[in-house]
Design a protein around this nucleic acid. Structure first.
Length: 708
RNA sequence: GGGCGCUUAGCUCAGUGGCAGAGCACCUCGUUUACACCGAGGGGGUCAUAGGUUCAAAUCCUAUAGCGCCCACCA
């Protein structure tokens, strides 16, 4: 027995050494697996953004995927886990910009070329750091295939995808109201907004009605509109009421004198107006509100762009506020209206405001010339994939989130006015693509699409399809089997991968989607770096070891429920590792040269031994079943219970005064079986113990054969 | 406004029709050579509330309350 086999178990002495041995073996690459006689089993790691380091969610997700990959590898599949990182457009640009700001440099001072160099430097540093952290977790990824969403070959995939959409007429350019982040200076898609509740005011403002002639009696000489954004008065081009609202029936068609601007605008009837809200009269600002834009279109109203891309009032807003910031203009307008005695009432009002998901600045709807991808056909593909059951979510309830979004989808604004990203491959456009445009291609772009394709024409769908070249990765490893990811990117990413896979590869990119738990603080708050409520998985690894950290994460993942993080389960994992360590020492000391790796259960006569083997068998079955159902926590509980209660407390105690070959064989066989079954969950310690067995079947436990 | 999830021991959570469970914490005993990161034993719960179905409800149904999340054209 190895003299390292001292007590207690020390993960630090083991984990790095074992990981290096695994890497050296080459077995993370399925091409090198000695007995992979079953089909390929592929998982594409959701590429972490290069914006920082890994958090608990990444750690949980890496563990889940590693469990699946390691189990399949041991079962004889050509197991491939493709790792990589995402360039994460706006997020990365912002973080590098912040970095520069500390040195008092703006990206504009630096210039585009130099700035992009800085980002590439950042990418090298943090990209490597992230991959290093995945290794510390024990992730058995094939690093030789590591991908990055801005690698040269990946860029080719992005261009091919764009071209194919363009050739089909699904990409178009248009001046439309988009979500605009003045701080980032770019458009955003609907999914890139975060809404937060803000306390504000609702102002009731009097708009006077123009007298047409003296013969027409008018009941009031003004009407009252309610608004939360008085500064947009400057861009009003109508006032609208509900056509069925009896109160305002006579008003439809009348002319209103817009305050401050003194512009004449009509009263229109539109179904978008709710009779019950506010006064039932709404001001219409077609350039700066999505609903108002629709009303404007229906009534052919002019759109005055009064707010510009920097969040300042434009010339078109008039001399009154020209050049002011939005908030300044609001103050000024309110002051003026008060002077004119046009504010009837000012009341407290809470409403949700759209914020940029990357910088938290307020997003302004404004008209802008952008590129769009037509979604109607693509959405159909993604909907069908889930409704037909070809793609399944676990837990299933997330399918609703996916389908609800796809069924109400709008065209996707794919252009961004930032520097870091894939340039739109059209002459004269400086825009880059939404970072999710490239992420959407991940499951096949990482495997060599489109280089490994022979294009074939599909008349039915009038599209060029990819027929994967034989022998290449794409033919061999696409589609992947499972995707495991966080719930907040179901639509942002999962849905887009599904239709992209079908559109370009004619095959869903995966059949099963695991939506793993979200990890919250103990009192149910979001873990956040800025609030200091986050927990760094690397610190846990340092304190308790990677196996214990993985144990703690999985122990708490039950049925996809959110996890209120409790560190004591990681400590339990550390104790369990130590228990296993001592069990192994006992078994190895006791059995010595009699250690056997195979037994014939039928030959065992001893009653307690037969009983243990029965329980061992049912534990194995139960664990396999649970993993197949993605009930990882349940599987670990079952295994833990067997090892500690049945094997250690009962059988090992029983075996102490027995010295028969029969008992020795049951002890050794049970230990080996436990190591194999537990290896996907706690790979380091199980591998280390395996290395100390007197006779073993394989070079590494990682490639030991197990049956399912 | 719509949707989803949760509420079980001090804490974190399993348990989906048949005697209330685990980990941690707590108490008692135990320096038996695998392990004190241990072993043997123990205390502790009106299963959010109200009503219903059933021989039987933590579990199924209805309503209510609280917590959390998501979506929406919240003027």
């Amino acid at each position: 027995m190895n003299e390292e086999f001292n007590k207690p178990y020390d993960p630090k002495a083991v984990e790095e050494k074992i990981y290096n041995e695994w890497e050296k073996s080459g077995y993370f690459n399925p091409d090198n697996l000695p007995h992979a006689d079953k089909g390929p089993f592929t998982i594409a790691l959701p590429p972490p953004n290069i914006t920082g380091t890994l958090h608990m969610g990444h750690a949980l997700n890496a563990t889940i995927q590693d469990i699946l990959i390691r189990k399949k590898r041991m079962e004889g599949y050509k197991a491939l886990w493709i790792p990589g990182t995402d360039h994460a457009g706006i997020a990365t640009q912002n973080i590098v910009e912040k970095q520069l700001k500390k040195e008092n440099i703006s990206r504009h001072q630096l210039g585009k070329e130099k700035f992009l160099e800085k980002i590439w430097e950042w990418k090298e540093k943090y990209g490597d750091m992230i991959l290093g952290q995945l290794k510390k977790m024990g992730s058995s990824c094939d690093w030789s295939r590591a991908a990055f969403t801005m690698n040269p070959q990946y860029s080719k995939a992005v261009q091919s995808a764009f071209r194919q959409y363009y050739d089909k007429g699904w990409i178009y350019r248009g001046e439309r109201i988009v979500n605009w982040c003045p701080r980032c200076g770019t458009s955003l898609s609907d999914l890139e907004l975060e809404y937060i509740e803000e306390k504000s005011k609702l102002w009731r403002i009097k708009y006077s009605i123009k007298k047409t002639n003296n013969l027409q009696p008018i009941t009031n000489d003004f009407i009252v509109v309610a608004t939360a954004r008085p500064e947009t008065i400057l861009g009003d081009s109508a006032v609208a009421v509900n056509p069925k609202d009896e109160r305002y029936k006579d008003l439809i068609g009348k002319i209103i004198i817009l305050p401050i601007q003194n512009r004449e605008i009509p009263v229109v009837a539109d179904i978008a107006v709710e009779k019950e809200f506010g006064t039932g009269v709404v001001k219409v600002t077609p350039a700066h509100d999505f609903t108002d834009a629709e009303i404007g279109e229906r009534h052919k109203l002019p759109a005055y762009k009064i707010i510009d891309e920097r969040g300042r009032m434009t010339v078109e807003s008039g001399e009154f506020c020209n050049g002011l910031k939005i908030a300044e203009c609001r103050e000024k307008v309110i002051k003026k209206l008060k002077e004119l005695n046009l504010i009837e009432k000012e009341e407290d009002h809470t409403h949700s405001v759209a914020k940029c998901y990357r910088c938290e600045g307020t997003v302004e709807p404004l008209p802008s010339l952008q590129w769009f991808l037509k979604m109607s056909e693509l959405a159909k593909l993604a909907i069908e994939a889930v409704e037909s059951g070809k793609v399944r979510f676990h837990p299933q309830r997330w399918e609703k989130v996916y389908l609800d979004w796809l069924k109400n989808i709008k065209d996707w604004c794919i252009s961004r006015q930032i520097w870091w990203g894939h340039k739109i491959p059209i002459e004269g456009s400086e825009d880059v693509l939404d970072t999710w445009f490239s992420s959407a291609l991940w499951p096949f772009a990482t495997l060599g699409w489109p280089a490994q394709c022979e294009p074939t024409t599909d008349d039915k769908r009038q599209t060029t399809r990819c027929k994967s070249k034989e022998g290449g990765d794409l033919a061999q490893f696409y589609p992947t089997q499972v995707l495991s990811t966080a719930r907040d990117i179901i639509n942002l990413w999962v849905a887009r991968m599904v239709y992209s896979g079908i559109e370009f590869m004619d095959k869903e990119p995966f059949n099963n989607v695991i939506i793993h738990a979200t990890i919250l603080t103990k009192d149910g708050k979001r873990m956040s770096k800025s609030l200091g409520t986050g927990i760094d998985p690397m610190i846990l690894i340092d304190k308790y070891g990677a196996d214990a950290t993985r144990f703690g994460l999985i122990w708490q993942s039950m049925g996809g429920q959110d996890i209120h993080w409790a560190e004591e389960h990681v400590m339990a994992g550390k104790k369990f590792a130590n228990k296993l360590w001592n069990i192994s020492r006992f078994v190895l000391t006791k059995t010595g040269d009699s250690f056997v790796s195979k037994i014939d259960a039928g030959d065992i006569k001893d009653e307690a031994s037969r009983e243990l083997l029965k329980k061992l068998e049912s534990t194995k079955e139960s664990v396999n079943k649970d993993i197949d159902n993605y009930d990882f926590g349940q599987a670990l509980h079952t295994l833990y219970n067997f090892v500690w209660k049945e094997f250690a407390d009962k059988y090992i105690e029983y075996s102490k005064d027995k010295n028969s070959e029969e008992v020795f064989s049951v002890l050794s066989f049970s230990l080996l079986t436990v190591l194999k079954t537990l290896h996907p969950f706690m790979p380091f310690i199980t591998e280390e113990i395996y290395q100390n067995l007197p006779n073993k079947n394989a070079e590494f436990l990682m490639v030991e054969e197990i049956s399912n």
